[in-house]
Design a protein around this nucleic acid. Structure first.
Lengths: 224, 224
DNA sequence: TATTGCTTTAATGCATACATTGATGTGTGC
DNA sequence: GCACACATCAATGTATGCATTAAAGCAATA
């Protein structure tokens, strides 16, 4: 029995390409273009592009404005506030639930690896790698927890937050504390200490939100 | 300045109609039909139907199976478990945050009304009205809290859970406890007691999940 | 110059056409 | 009766055409 590999179709291509352009800020916040133009750029007709855009709109990355085309959503401090509030609610509970299952070292390996990668990245001053590893930690944690809907929701929000994080990444202190947070959380998970895991995670997200929002508000970045 | 009223377009119609059919179980879990058939039934071409279906898929109500058409997702106990776990994480925090703002009686009026409606519905043995009022309570609460993304996420999940709730509504005891929960939560909100609000809400959702899952598993309902 | 109204332009929303390709059914050989 | 190859059918994925209508440009007027 073969696993049905979803054949890459044009809609899927358009979706991937556009999402990548947006995440990478190559299509910056506020960028706007009519469907025909995007279609031309992607070398396909309007139909698959339109369908991809509908998905991206549902995921909160673009806005479809009648007669004006698709607009890449701006990065507003309020949006990040909303997003981080949700992180702060969901992730600590998910992590605590995972801790309660008394996961084995082997199971936690992806998290150990991600944490190690974060530390390595700090040593080599590679902030992009750091951000990537940080992301991986959070995603793997959710996978381990196993609630697929929860994963889906949070991944959508990670995508939304990604651009802001990349922009602010170099405007703040080296993320020593954040890296240490991960180390601590991992430790609590290994010990199966649910309450400690939850508390640590909550603090982790509260701090992250505080830092991010400070930067966004102080620097008044050109995010529209 | 006039508020731009989103003119009802065919896609929007298709979306609303299909969503309504699904929520009401007129298109029952497991129902499957090819796009052309749905389009014919709605009296429009495939294009708007397809676009509506893409949205509904993103919202977890249908599944688009290549060559087989759109399929209304089944109601599985595991899905409800996932959903209620998310409720249990998000709503208590949101309610606690609201309590922390020391809301006035006037602000809480929609919740008072909803609670009263629940009690009235119990008196008159109108379970549908009860469910409706229950829903309203939760939605209004989120509105008051103000995190739009949070509202969006939870509303999507309410929709997903709706069908299961309606099916099980008459298979369980009269929801006295649940109604009382709302009364208590409202009281805690009025008192601005964040921690009590959170605790009550969490218990409320935990109990609801327990009951719902029990019914789903025991009755082995034909939900596929 | 600012305002109003008209003309032009062009993007969307939708319908339709069509090629591709998986699913279904039939017939043949064993 | 069963398996397999093949022919048929039909649904999707995509392209394209077209009417509608908002936006932008322009002109005439105050």
């Amino acid at each position: 029995m073969k696993t049905p590999i979803p054949k890459p179709t044009r809609v899927a291509d358009a979706y991937e390409m556009l999402k990548d352009e947006i995440r990478s800020n190559r299509m910056p916040p506020g960028f706007q273009a009519p469907e025909p133009e995007i279609a031309a750029r992607l070398g396909m007709s309007r139909t698959p592009v339109r369908e991809a855009l509908i998905r991206l709109q549902a995921e909160g990355l673009v806005e479809l404005i009648p007669r004006r085309g698709a607009r890449v959503l701006p990065i507003r401090a309020e949006d990040m506030q909303e997003i981080y509030e949700i992180f702060t609610s969901l992730e600590p509970d998910a992590a605590a639930a995972l801790a309660r299952t008394n996961p084995t070292q082997a199971q936690l390996q992806p998290l150990t690896d991600a944490t190690a990668a974060m530390e390595r990245a700090l040593d080599t001053d590679d902030l992009d790698a750091w951000a990537e590893a940080d992301d991986q930690f959070h995603r793997h944690l959710l996978n381990l927890h196993g609630n697929r809907r929860l994963s889906g929701i949070l991944e959508t929000l990670y995508d939304q937050a990604h651009r802001a994080r990349m922009i602010t990444l170099r405007l703040r202190e080296v993320p020593l504390q954040s890296t240490q947070d991960h180390r601590d959380i991992l430790e609590a998970l290994k010990n199966g200490d649910a309450e400690r895991t939850r508390a640590l995670f909550r603090r982790h997200r509260e701090r992250a939100a505080f830092e991010l929002l400070n930067i966004l508000e102080n620097y008044k970045l050109p995010l529209l």
